[in-house]
Write a protein that binds this DNA or RNA. Structure first.
Lengths: 149, 149
DNA sequence: GCTTCAAATGCAACTTTATTGCATGACCGA
DNA sequence: TCGGTCATGCAATAAAGTTGCATTTGAAGC
């Protein structure tokens, strides 16, 4: 739950019309402590008010394009979505459990990434850096050990 | 082109039968200086000898499972594949151009990632860390600037 | 050299996730 | 009140990967 972000402001600051659907999508993402899949976002928003899943995809695309939301790769085929770094949120790595498919946020300082050499040497334009840790979460570890025996 | 890797050895060391198709897939990946999509791998191998695209996917799955090849997320929906870190290859970040879709390898030292804090604190199991830089490559930058004007 | 068997491969079909095309609705400004 | 633009709904489509089943291939044993 982010209590610092005013989602309406985030939208208008990004030059976007703050429609009800958009607000609900942003709230679903912002109120979650971990990135969500498009399906989970759709389920969350649809629980409050009917919305077409195509609309969810369109809204997510728009929010990503305008830098309000980050589209995060998982080890699978679906993307997850989280609030993009802003004044209240630092960029941070994510952990993706290859067993249960859940993704969580890692503290920024848990993986120190020094990007200075890259900025000095890279001839193109850098837009964002995604750091993802794949493994097995602590909930799945016991099951993982079990299934190997 | 990696001249240090004996692909047949890589396969047998991983406990896999070194079939002709698997060798060709591994050669396609190992001979490339950048990660390849499944389609590109299929095209490369099919240029030498007919192979079904389902077989390419199956071989890639097997190679990933056995730690011979890395499945790398792109910003898009397709995965790219590169040799997994081994005695001759350090783990390294990748750059993905959001304009042309090409991915290239970055020098390990261009992005220093300090994972010590994570290893100390993370309660689950860490299998791999993927670092991807998204942006616009130097070839696309002029076009990108043009299309904005 | 033949037989057997298990794994690899081919093929058609399917699934998952996301996207597109077109129509309609909603809202705002004149 | 009307017109226009953007947002949204719906059906259909596309891209990428997976599954089920049959066949092929290659190695081992006799």
């Amino acid at each position: 739950m982010c209590q610092h972000c005013n989602y309406g402001n985030l939208l208008t600051t990004a030059g976007l019309e703050a429609t009800a659907h958009r607000l609900h999508v942003l709230e679903a993402i912002g109120d979650s402590t971990f990135p969500l899949s498009a399906v989970a976002i759709h389920q969350s928003v649809a629980g409050r008010r009917a919305i077409n899943r195509v609309t969810v995809y369109r809204i997510l695309d728009t929010l990503v394009e305008h830098g309000v939301v980050d589209r995060i790769s998982t080890g699978g085929r679906a993307f997850n979505y989280g609030l993009a770094p802003n004044a209240h949120h630092q960029p941070h790595p994510h952990f993706y459990c290859t067993r249960c498919g859940r993704m969580c946020c890692l503290a920024p300082e848990s993986l120190n990434v020094d990007t200075h050499p890259l900025w000095k040497t890279f001839p193109g334009r850098i837009d964002r850096i995604e750091v993802r840790v794949d493994g097995v979460c602590k909930n799945c570890l016991p099951l993982e050990t079990q299934s190997r025996n």
